[in-house]
């Protein structure tokens, strides 16, 4: 089961945890699991269309999933999923 590192802004929804162990076989599964387990995260991870929110970066191990298979990227035992804010401005 993949470990998920949460950004500080989302930790309050998970009882303050920095890392949680999630369920699922793909990144999309992991995001669904997070939304179902921690309802406060709903709407903060994905846009209405289902893709990752543009203000969020999702990584599997060392790579942004945008450069892998997106939300279809496979995860498993020993995989680390990291969620961080996408930082941009004007």
């Amino acid at each position: 089961m993949p470990a998920v590192r949460l950004p500080t802004v989302l930790r309050s929804h998970a009882g303050g945890a920095a890392v949680v162990v999630a369920e699922g076989e793909t990144v999309a599964d992991v995001l669904s699991w997070l939304e179902a387990t921690y309802p406060g995260m709903a709407g903060q991870l994905r846009a209405p269309g289902g893709e990752a929110h543009r203000f969020v970066n999702v990584y599997v191990d060392d790579d942004d999933v945008r450069y892998l298979d997106g939300l279809a990227t496979k995860v498993g035992e020993g995989t680390e999923v990291t969620i961080l804010p996408a930082v941009a401005g004007g």
Partner: peptide, 19 residues
């Protein structure tokens, strides 16, 4: 990453490495 005089984007990889 935006290489702009008006906007900026912190590269995704740099964000992960800094974290």
């Amino acid at each position: 990453e935006a290489a702009s005089a008006r906007i900026y984007t912190v590269p995704s990889k740099a964000m992960l490495l800094a974290d």
